[in-house]
């Protein structure tokens, strides 16, 4: 009986150890912005808000254009058993012509397959000019990926128009339980790619989360626990 209990404890420790070995840390958060406006200055400040989560606030400032974000990144550890990024991002074109923007939020780290992913994206478009405005994308406006491979795309070939000084809702899109066969070896990321007409402002709220799917050994172990407890009670 004692041997059985010892085995269960050792196996449980192995399971925890295995989960904790995959690591996403706050220092792995990486923001990047490219724009047809040209080069800009990127600033990001990190604040630890829980033992496993960090708040990232910052922005990118170019010539008459800007990107600001407020983004939380949850690290991957044995207690949360999931990693995610969520937050708000605002992209503003204050130039007199249409401009392209690409913004990437990456969580650097690794995790073992199999994984399941979930996420969502919603947003608004504000035309702050006296002319008809547009927000467009060639391909997906929003993309969530692992190691550069897309897991989920939303707002493909987006095309939104707004009258002068009007607001347009971009809608909301959700996905869940998307399985991925590969491990994360470098990063999980979200990417915004869009073109904004002069005086346009796009704002988004988005989430990308993932967690491990327990392997057969782990499931067998979990199934084994009640049997052991039952035998102990007997």
């Amino acid at each position: 009986m004692n041997i059985q209990n010892t085995c269960v404890i050792v196996a449980s420790l192995c399971l925890i150890s295995s989960t904790a070995s995959a690591g996403f840390t706050s220092s792995g958060a990486q923001f990047s912005v490219t724009s047809s406006v040209g080069s800009g200055t990127l600033v990001n400040a990190q604040t630890q808000i829980t033992p496993a989560a960090w708040s990232n606030t910052g922005g990118w400032t170019g010539t008459n254009a800007s990107v600001t974000w407020q983004n939380n990144i949850q690290g991957w550890d044995s207690t949360t058993s999931a990693g995610f990024t969520n937050g708000n991002i605002v992209i503003r074109n204050n130039t007199s012509t249409a401009q392209d923007f690409a913004v990437t939020v990456a969580m650097l780290g690794n995790a073992s397959a199999p994984l399941v992913a979930a996420g969502s994206i919603g947003g608004q478009y504000v035309n702050g000019s006296a002319s008809l405005g547009s927000l467009t994308s060639t391909g997906p406006l929003w993309s969530a990926g692992i190691d550069g491979v897309s897991v989920n795309d939303q707002l493909n070939n987006a095309l939104f128009f707004a009258q002068p000084y009007q607001v347009v809702s971009l809608g909301s899109f959700n996905f869940s339980n998307v399985g991925t066969s590969g491990s994360i070896t470098n990063n999980a990321s979200i990417r915004f790619s869009l073109r904004l007409s002069a005086g346009g402002e796009a704002s988004f709220t988005s989430v990308f989360s993932f967690q491990t799917v327990p392997g057969p050994a782990s499931i067998a172990l979990i199934g084994f626990l009640p049997i052991v407890r039952s035998r102990r009670r007997r």
Partner: peptide, 16 residues
């Protein structure tokens, strides 16, 4: 009503 889900809403307008 879904984990990490998002919903969009239009609040309407006046005077346009």
């Amino acid at each position: 009503s879904s984990p990490f889900g998002t919903t969009s809403f239009s609040g309407g307008s006046f005077g346009q």
